[in-house]
C-alpha cells in the first residue's frame, strides 16, 4: 500500500549549512506519526520542505504516491497536504470565522468570485462553522483573532488547516507555548480527528508523544537517528542520550 506521505533522501541547505540531511521518511495512511528531536534538529525545516515553503537541495517528496517535489506550496495543499505553524500564522485582524472561511473558500477554489457577497455562500459558512465547532471555538466565531487567548489561537491554527480538508495533516508543535494543562486539551482534539486522516506531529513533551503517537521518528542534526514504535524509541539508549544529555546542559 502506498504511503500517505513519503520522502527519499531529502536535503535542505541554508548556504553552507545543511539543516536537513538525507531524510527518507514513509508515513502510512491513517498513521499518528510523531517527529521528535532537540531544538534546532531541523524538524520545522523538514516540514517547510514537505509543504513546499522551502526548496530542498536534493531528494523527492511524494503525497499519496504522487510526485510533489516540483509543486508549489499551494498546489500541495490541493493535493491533500495541510499544515499548522509552530509560531501562529493567523489573519489577526479578521474574525475567527473569516479565518476559517477563507481557508474553506480557497480549498474549493471559490476565491476568484468577486461579484457575490462572501456571506451568501451558505455551504462554505456551514463548513467553516463545523471546523470551528470541532476545536470548540464556535462561540468565539465573531471575535477578531487578535482578541483571542493564546491557547484558542493554537486551536484556530488547527481549524484553518482542517478547512483545507487534508488527507495528510502536519502539525508543527501544536501546543507550543501553551501551559501543560491546556496542551492536553489540544492533543485531545488531535486525537479526535477522523482515523482516516494521516497526522504527523512535532512535540517536545514525551508524555504526550508516547500517549498519542503510534510511530516516532527521531531527528538529530538534520538526520534521522532512528524510527520505531513508542516502546522501541523509549528503550533506545541513543535517544535517551540525546534527550537526557541535552536536558542536562541546556534547559530545552
Amino acid at each position: 500500500m502506498t504511503a500517505a506521505l513519503a520522502t527519499t533522501a531529502l536535503s535542505v541547505r541554508f548556504g553552507a549549512f545543511q539543516a536537513v540531511r538525507d531524510v527518507s521518511l514513509s508515513v502510512r495512511a491513517g498513521a499518528r506519526h510523531a517527529l521528535i528531536g532537540p531544538n534546532g534538529a531541523g524538524k520545522t525545516t523538514l516540514v517547510h520542505a514537505l509543504t513546499g515553503s522551502v526548496k530542498p537541495a536534493a531528494g523527492r517528496i511524494l503525497i499519496a504516491g504522487e510526485e510533489a517535489t516540483g509543486r508549489s506550496e499551494a498546489q500541495r495543499v490541493h493535493m491533500g497536504l495541510a499544515r499548522t505553524f509552530q509560531i501562529n500564522q493567523l489573519f489577526r485582524n479578521l474574525t475567527v470565522l473569516d479565518n476559517v472561511l477563507l481557508a474553506v473558500l480557497e480549498r474549493n477554489r471559490r476565491t476568484a468570485v468577486f461579484w457575490r457577497s462572501v456571506r451568501n455562500d451558505r455551504a462554505a459558512l456551514d463548513e467553516a462553522r463545523s471546523c470551528l465547532a470541532f476545536v470548540n471555538l464556535l462561540a468565539l466565531a465573531e471575535r477578531p483573532v487578535a482578541a483571542l487567548p493564546y491557547g484558542s489561537q493554537r486551536l484556530l491554527e488547527i481549524a484553518i488547516a482542517l478547512a483545507a480538508r487534508p488527507r495528510v495533516l502536519v502539525l508543527d508543535e501544536p501546543a507550543a507555548g501553551v501551559p501543560a494543562a491546556e496542551s492536553a486539551a489540544i492533543f485531545e482534539r488531535i486525537h479526535a480527528l477522523p482515523a482516516s486522516l494521516t497526522v504527523v506531529f512535532i512535540e517536545h513533551d514525551m508524555g504526550l508523544v508516547f500517549r498519542f503517537a503510534e510511530r516516532i521518528t527521531v531527528l538529530v542534526a538534520g538526520q534521522i537517528l532512528t524510527e520505531g514504535t513508542p516502546a522501541e524509541i523509549s528503550a533506545d539508549p541513543r535517544v535517551r542520550e540525546v534527550y537526557l544529555g541535552r536536558r542536562g546542559d541546556h534547559a530545552a
Binding site: 509543504t51 506550496e73 495543499v77 476568484a112 468577486f114
Partner: peptide
C-alpha cells in the same frame, strides 16, 4: 466578496495564504 476576503488574507498574513 470571497475574492475581497482573499485579498485581506494576503494583507494580514501573506505567509499563511499559500499554506491554505
Amino acid at each position: 466578496s470571497p475574492f475581497g476576503l482573499a485579498l485581506r488574507g494576503i494583507r494580514e498574513n501573506s505567509r499563511r495564504m499559500p499554506a491554505i
